[in-house]
Amino acid sequence: MPPREGIYGLLAEFNTPGELVRATEEAHQAGYRRMECYTPYPVEEAAVALRFHKTRVPLVCLLGGLLGGTTAFLMETWISVWSYPLNIAGRPLFSWPAFIIPAYEWTILFAGLSAAYGMLALNGLPQLYHPLFNAPNFRDGASTDKFFLCLEAADPRFSIIESRAFLERFAPVSVVEVEL
């Protein structure tokens, strides 16, 4: 793999979530789209400012549940009717009431697992490397008491000079270039 060159983006550090949200909102108005907020705890307004809306986790969860329920039900049907038919108290081989509970359990199991793993997968996790950790202040502050806005270089609106000037209008603690 050739060495990666250039920068990932510009990282602005703020002391309060309010400043972060304001900067994010204005960045959105200025036309930036490839950007991300990093906060030590969930800041709902930052998500609003990012226009972060929907994820596909619910869909993955639903599909997982349907898959689990169907699999269990069909498997029980196959076992009881074709693979190993047993006469249990003279009931029909296809005794669907008895199949419901395992099918239900599998629905929950598959839905739960697909929600958890689907969330990880859609988040791109596990991720062994992320350029942001090249910024020392990010390493120290992102999970304790600092609020970060990163304008990514992939954004067409991004310019190393103008974007820096734009971010500095919000009086951040610092604006650093993040290397790839």
Binding site: R22, E25, A49
Partner: peptide
């Protein structure tokens, strides 16, 4: 922050 009256969302 609401009290500070920032505009924005």
């Amino acid at each position: 922050h609401g009290a500070q009256g920032h505009h924005g969302p």
